[in-house]
Design a protein around this nucleic acid. Structure first.
Lengths: 334, 334
DNA sequence: CTGAAAGCGCTTACAG
DNA sequence: CTGAAAGCGCTTACAG
């Protein structure tokens, strides 16, 4: 079924396109009886104006873009839902594109957003551009979007609004809390702190925590690889073999937490280390398996990010905001 | 930074807009040296054509819509990823909208897709329109979209391409398999089979299974409520109280499976019934907890659905396809 | 309160 | 191989 146009409606109503457009945009400007007539015709023919034409004419889009690593990871799925709640209320639609933590895909995603002329974009940077000496480059890309950008979850120190969890502080707290409970040998399984902003923040927090409680860092207890379950699994297996064992371990994202648990489950869950995972691991509560974790409410993160974008659209000249969200430590087993 | 237009580029290159447009659309038509000149100018100014203008002019959009209940449910998150893999390859972008299993939201989502004039839509119907006597209505809405629609996961018997799992058969198989293992009292915890297509398919499969093995249906063992964890939790608690107990239970989606496990965990996992869940429940394998489930690969579902859309766009007149995917039973505990 | 007209940024048939 | 012009479906300043 072909879509009706504003001209079709105008013809049927015996008025000009301008008048039809007015009942769409400022109905109070058109006289009651003609308005009603036009409205009834629009209804009868199930007319819906084309956003494409409208956007072009108005020179603004009603859609905003979201670029995240992968929507099937529940952290980002939930983040996305939080964003949607707010953008929906503001009549904005969502264009999605994943970057798979991959620089090339990331650039393609930005290109997509640019070609779509979105009103704003929520952006989780794929890689640590500044650390790669590409800060200027990515900054230029983002600026050339010509719309507000909200950097989420990973702060790559660009002049854009930013919102993320205070992972550094959370990690530091976790170490201190473990130390206070008597732990002195605290291992960590993390992503690559050279290439990932997140990983370096988390590692720094770990070091700060050790320092705060006067524990010397032991390289044998530090694993920094990739944020994958399989990596943590191997790291944990290796830890289990050491003659000198840690008494506690912190895993730095949900995949790593799962990998560690997998390894632990294989070895019989009997004498596990005390485990703190950054991000809650699903199902454990439900199975009544006690679990310590740093809680990051990604739905809330999404909502706040969306509010940030709305307010940035409203006040383009407002100074840049950098929002840091608390990530509390939930202790259940020590 | 304001976006460049095709006229800006044309002016800088000293050619007409038409020529610039040609290097974008059919570069072989423009003479080598002018093409290179134009290309270098486009590059220098980081020019990207506006999809909005292009879509309006070409009268086709390069984005397709996705309507699912909620992206934070991993079944749909993974489905979405599968869709993206294929649409990406075909240069289509994705517009997302959730319907939250809610009729009103569903209609709004369709309206959004219509106003956006998308090239096609992937649609998981929010409710069982035919059962509500609204088959004609929803059909009209979908047709008025003016683009191909792929109905996913829930078959509401409309004249559109359709792809979903053969839940009925899977349920039947599960019952038969349990019966062969000696179970005669097989409970089921399901969604509402009056309002949900899925639930009614699943319930029918359950009944067919019972029939096939000559077991009479016992109402005391049939729970049909809502697809929520909390519902299954309560249903399970109630089952546990009965004087006559089932020996096996089938839960009909991942939320229900979790609710059942939650209740079971609270009662001590000792003398559980044999449990089969429709959809794999995450974490159990990893924790070495054996688990029987009907496996539905939603990534594959997404990919197949996307391929279906691509082929429908290519061959609009091809007859309607209804694809049924197998959902195998994975047995680990009996 | 309403209409004619120009414009948004592209594409493409037509003419040269 | 290239340009002028019309058109895609809207919006809105301008004039009446």
């Amino acid at each position: 079924m072909k879509n009706m146009t504003i001209s079709d409606i105008a013809a049927k109503a015996g008025v000009s396109k301008a008048t039809v457009s007015r009942v769409l945009n400022s109905p109070e400007m058109v006289e009651g009886s003609t308005r009603e007539k036009i409205e009834s015709i629009m209804k009868e023919y199930n007319y819906t104006p084309s956003a494409t034409a409208r956007n072009l004419s108005k020179q603004v889009s009603s859609t905003v873009g979201v670029i995240v690593p992968e929507i099937s990871n529940s952290f980002f799925g939930t983040l996305f839902s939080g964003i949607e709640e707010i953008t929906n209320k503001n009549g904005l639609s969502l264009l999605y594109c994943s970057n798979e933590d991959n620089e090339k895909k990331d650039l393609m995603a930005l290109e997509l957003m640019k070609t779509q002329r979105v009103r704003g974009v929520f952006y989780v940077p794929a890689v640590n551009y500044p650390a790669m000496g590409k800060k200027k480059k990515i900054q230029k890309e983002l600026e050339s979007l010509g719309c507000p950008v909200i950097c989420i979850d990973r702060d790559i120190a660009l002049p854009f609004d930013t919102i993320h969890f205070d992972d550094r502080k959370a990690m530091k707290n976790a170490v201190i809390s473990l130390a206070e409970a008597g732990h002195r040998r605290i291992a960590v399984i993390n992503g690559n702190s050279e290439s990932s902003v997140l990983a370096s923040e988390r590692y720094d927090g770990y070091l700060e925590g050790l320092k705060a409680v006067g524990i010397e860092m032991d390289e044998a207890f530090v694993y920094q690889g990739v944020y994958k379950q399989s990596y943590a699994y191997l790291a944990a297996k290796e830890l289990f073999q050491k003659k000198e064992q840690p008494t506690a371990v912190i895993t730095c994202n949900n995949n790593l937490g799962r990998g560690y648990l997998q390894a632990a489950a294989e070895c019989g869950t009997a004498d596990l280390y005390t485990h703190v995972s950054l991000d809650k691991i699903e199902m454990l509560d439900l199975l009544k398996i006690p679990h310590n974790y740093i809680e990051r409410d990604s739905y809330e993160l999404g909502k706040k990010a969306a509010e940030l974008l709305i307010s940035r659209i409203a006040f383009p000249e407002k100074r840049i905001q950098n929002i840091l969200m608390e990530a509390p430590l939930i202790r259940e087993t020590y």
